[in-house]
């Protein structure tokens, strides 16, 4: 039995190495002084990070990406909170169908969502804008926000709302004073993970950006079409740090247990 458990742990470690390996080599190569890429490690340097500063297009694109990530996640989290409340509080007619519909973007390729939005705008002759991108990203991250919200509501005692009502709170007040604070960790986790998912997504935005609204992944993709160099590794490292901060925050501060 012991041997079996040891094997299990060993396999888990191998899988973790497989999963984290590619990200780790990017971190290492971002501080490698060798100019040809990729190449064996020579000396540690921060010059590639400094080189990033000379490329304004990355910064502009990052600002677009942050705006889109925050706006779309805010919309998705609000929709997920209200919808999740309705779906969890009582048996809604077609409740199962509705929650399936809300999770459906998970099963539609991002590139198809992007294409479909491009084509509907073309048919009604509307121009591409930041709003287009925000809607596309909000739809895409809705399942993520909804899943975390629903698991938050599954531990929520709706009797508390009746208590608040009987003490004289109106429904809106009960929602703000009781439901919102209790659900806060799930909502913040849903918002954070949604924002990161939106921030790094390429296929959704690929057809929907203009030179003015280009997102960071779109600009990086265009750059990587012509070449890859250590500067891209430096940029990638910064993105990994954002993702790592988000995961650690969700685990440590919000204490969200994704497996339960």
């Amino acid at each position: 039995m012991k041997a079996l458990r040891g094997l299990g742990i060993g396999w888990l470690v191998l899988v973790l190495i497989f999963l984290l390996g590619p990200t780790l080599v990017v971190l290492v190569d971002s501080i490698n002084s060798a100019t040809s890429f990729p190449s064996p490690f020579e000396q540690a340097t921060l010059r590639w990070y400094r080189a990033l500063g000379e490329h304004e297009e990355f910064l502009d694109a990052a600002i677009n990406s942050v705006e889109i990530a925050l706006a779309s996640s805010a919309i998705a989290t609000l929709c997920a909170f209200l919808g999740g409340f309705a779906l969890s509080r009582r048996r809604v007619r077609f409740g199962h169908a509705i929650s399936t519909a809300m999770l459906s973007p998970l099963f539609i390729p991002e590139i198809v969502i992007g294409l479909a939005i491009l084509q509907v705008l073309g048919l009604v002759a509307l121009p591409l804008s930041m709003l287009t991108l925000i809607v596309a990203h909000a739809v895409f991250v809705l399942p993520m926000a909804l899943r975390l919200t629903l698991s938050g509501f599954s531990r929520f005692d709706f009797g508390l709302l009746d208590a608040a009502r009987s003490l004289g709170a109106n429904p809106a007040r009960a929602m703000l004073a009781v439901t919102l604070p209790i659900l806060r960790p799930s909502l913040i986790a849903g918002f954070t993970l949604s924002a990161v998912f939106s921030f790094v997504n390429l296929p959704l935005s690929m057809f929907l950006t203009t030179p003015r609204t280009a997102t960071l992944p779109v600009v990086v993709f265009a750059y990587m079409e012509s070449r890859i160099d250590p500067m891209i590794a430096a940029l990638a490292t910064l993105v990994v740090l954002i993702a790592a901060a988000a995961t650690i925050g969700v685990d440590r501060f919000l204490r969200i247990r994704i497996l339960d």
């Binding site: 984290l20 590619p22 990017v26 390429l202 990994v240 994704i258």
Partner: peptide, 25 residues
């Protein structure tokens, strides 16, 4: 749950980062 989240790190870092890593490796 912490292990599960650690596994999500490459997903959250985005496919471009991961693909860059694979191209190096």
């Amino acid at each position: 749950s912490a292990v599960g989240l650690a596994m999500m790190l490459p997903v959250l870092s985005g496919p471009l980062v991961v693909v860059l890593g694979w191209m190096i490796l």
